[in-house]
Structures are given as structure tokens and as C-alpha cells.
Amino acid sequence: MKRNIKLDATDRKILEILQKNAKITNAQLSQEIGLSPAPTLERVKKLENSGVIQSYHAKLDANKIGLGVSTFVMVSLKGHNKENIERFVSRIESIPEIVECHHVTGSGDFILKIVAEDISSYQMLMLETVSNIDIVDNMQSMVILSTFKDSKVMPLK
């Protein structure tokens, strides 16, 4: 388990700003937090190097790029051992339509978020790829009808 990184008020402010606008220039960021550009850049680099900031991404509109169907799929494996978990994760890492994979407690072992062009593409993916993973025991699909909140912003105390 990773240890928590000590963050002061300035670090938290930097993180709040970058989560909302990762394209902000260092000069603009330094103005907003009240430091000169050099120490601001040093703090951002420290946050990146420590792993607090993992990456920067462009958020895409799935519908506008032809991915009209999103689902959550609860997956149960045939065995709950480390080898099966590693085999499953290894197999799904190579499937680009699976955009999230979470190991969970409860009635299933994993929750996957899957995006596809349409229902027939989704069905084909499930029948020909995901269900053919030999250690998959059971799957339950939930089609996402509407999304009312999809924030990637982490709350900072």
C-alpha cells in the first residue's frame, strides 16, 4: 500500500487548478497560487515525480467519436485465487473497449466499464472476447442509459 504524500495548502490549490484545467500555463498557475513561476514549476514537478499527479488527459465525448453504448459488467471468476485474478487482468488489458476495470467485493469479482459503437458491437465483444476468457464464470451487464455526473476531479480536504 502506498503511503500518503504530505500536501500543504499550496499543493492542494495547484491540484485543484490542474484538475479543472490541465492546459493552464505555468505562468497562469503561478499567478493563481501567488508564487513566482520557478517555485510553481518545482512544486508541480514534485507532485508529478511523487505520483500524486499520474497523468494528463483529454476528455473525449464518447458519442461524438462513435461510441454510443457504455456498460458496466459485473464479472465473477471461477476461482478466487491470485493466479486467476492475474490471468483475467492480463487478458482484459489487451481489450481497448474495456476502459475501466475494478476489483471489487460483493456478488462479483470485477466491475468493467465497456464502451462500444452500438449494441451489436457490444454483443459481439461480449460473445467473442470477454465470455471466451476461460476463467470467467458469470457476467451481468448493465447498459448505461444516462450519465448525470462523470467527474474525474478528486476532492481535496
Rank of each mutant, 00 (worst) to 15 (best):
His103Arg: 09
Ser36Tyr: 13
Ser55Met: 07
Glu100Lys: 10
Val130Cys: 06
Leu77Gln: 06
Gln123Asn: 10
His102Trp: 13
Lys45Phe: 15
Leu127Gln: 10
Lys59His: 07
Lys46Trp: 04
Gly51Trp: 02
Ile114Cys: 04
Glu86Ile: 07
Lys45Tyr: 15
Ile119Phe: 11
Ala58His: 12
His57Tyr: 12
Leu77Gly: 12
Gln123Lys: 01
Gly106Glu: 05
Gly79Glu: 12
Lys113Arg: 15
Ser107Arg: 03
Leu77Met: 07
Asn81Met: 04
Leu125Lys: 08
Ile53Val: 13
Ser55Val: 06
Gln54Glu: 15
Ser76Ile: 01
Ile114Glu: 01
Thr71His: 09
Glu83Arg: 13
Gly51Gln: 06
Ser90Glu: 15
Glu128Asn: 15
His102Val: 01
Gln54Ser: 11
Ala38Asn: 11
Lys59Thr: 14
His102Asn: 12
Pro39His: 02
Thr105Met: 14
Lys82Val: 10
Lys113Thr: 15
Ile114Gln: 01
Leu67Asp: 01
Ser120Pro: 04
Thr105Asp: 02
Ser121Met: 04
Lys59Gln: 12
Leu47Arg: 07
Tyr56Ile: 04
Ala116Trp: 03
Ile95Pro: 00
Leu112His: 08
Gln123Tyr: 02
Ser107Glu: 12
Leu77Glu: 09
Met126Ser: 07
Leu127Pro: 00
Asp61Asn: 15
Tyr122Gln: 05
Tyr56Ala: 02
Ile65Gly: 02
Gly66Pro: 01
Asn63Arg: 10
Ile92Glu: 02
Ser94Trp: 02
Thr129Phe: 01
Gln123Ala: 05
Leu125His: 07
Met74Asp: 13
Gly106Ala: 14
Ile95Lys: 00
Pro96Val: 15
Pro37Ala: 14
Leu60Val: 10
Ile65Pro: 02
Ile95Tyr: 00
Leu41Pro: 00
Gly79Cys: 11
Asp109Lys: 05
Val89Pro: 05
Tyr122Glu: 09
Ser50Tyr: 04
Val89Lys: 13
Gly51Ser: 06
Gly68Leu: 14
His103Asp: 11
Pro37Glu: 07
Lys64Leu: 15
Thr105Gly: 10
Leu35His: 05
Ser36Ile: 09
Val104Tyr: 11
Asn81Lys: 11
Gly68Ser: 10
Lys113Phe: 07
Glu128Ile: 06
Ile33Ala: 11
Val52Gln: 07
Val73Ile: 06
Ser121Leu: 03
Ser76Lys: 11
Ala116Lys: 01
Ala62Phe: 11
Ser76Thr: 10
Val73Glu: 06
Val89Thr: 09
Val44Met: 11
Ser55Asp: 13
Lys45Ala: 14
Pro39Tyr: 01
Ala38Ser: 14
Ser121Trp: 00
Glu86Pro: 03
Ser55His: 08
Glu86Gln: 14
Lys82Thr: 09
Ile85Ser: 03
Ser55Ala: 10
Phe110Ser: 00
Val73Cys: 09
Ser76Gly: 13
Ser121Pro: 02
Leu125Pro: 03
Leu47Val: 03
Ala116Asp: 05
Leu125Trp: 09
Gly34Arg: 04
Lys59Trp: 14
Gly66Ile: 05
Thr71Phe: 06
Val52Leu: 13
Glu128Gln: 05
Gln123Val: 01
Pro96Met: 14
Ser70Leu: 09
Gly108Ser: 15
Ser70Ala: 08
Glu93Met: 15
